[in-house]
């Protein structure tokens, strides 16, 4: 039984990208906070966006070994995004206070707990 069978050609993928990206365009920026740089992220952190996320985190870490990552506008994080956080933990001297994750959603918090990252980094709910 087949309800739907879809093959996406290269031209169709542009359409799907647009359709799936509504209000979810990925953005990672760095602001100066009181205690160090704040990386603000919007969108999903997955295989497509992890590189941009890693670049923002690396830039922030080049300014300070302590940073805040604001996840309040992040809908999804997969292992590609989590591996960026693990590498940042190592780069910041393996100190739990080195990186602060702010305002993760309930779903994201569960992912952080499953992966044990809540034990490595400071999480502010």
């Amino acid at each position: 039984m087949i309800i739907a069978s879809v093959r996406l050609a290269a031209s169709a993928s542009d359409f799907v990208r647009g359709a799936c990206n509504v209000d979810r365009e990925f953005l990672a920026s760095i602001d100066d906070g009181d205690g160090g740089p704040v990386v603000r992220v919007r969108g999903d952190i997955d295989l497509a966006t992890a590189e941009a996320f890693a670049a923002a985190v690396d830039r922030a870490l080049s300014r300070s070994s302590r940073l805040v990552i604001d996840l309040s506008e992040v809908g999804f994080v997969g292992s590609t995004g989590l591996s960026v956080l693990v590498r940042a933990y190592h780069a910041s001297g393996r100190v739990k206070e080195g990186i602060e994750l702010r305002f993760p959603s309930a779903a994201l918090l569960r992912t952080l707990e499953i992966s044990g990252i809540d034990e490595l980094l400071t999480i502010v709910e």
Partner: peptide, 10 residues
């Protein structure tokens, strides 16, 4: 049952 073939685009 949904079948989807995707080009290798992350």
């Amino acid at each position: 049952c949904v079948k989807v073939d995707l080009i290798p685009d992350p």
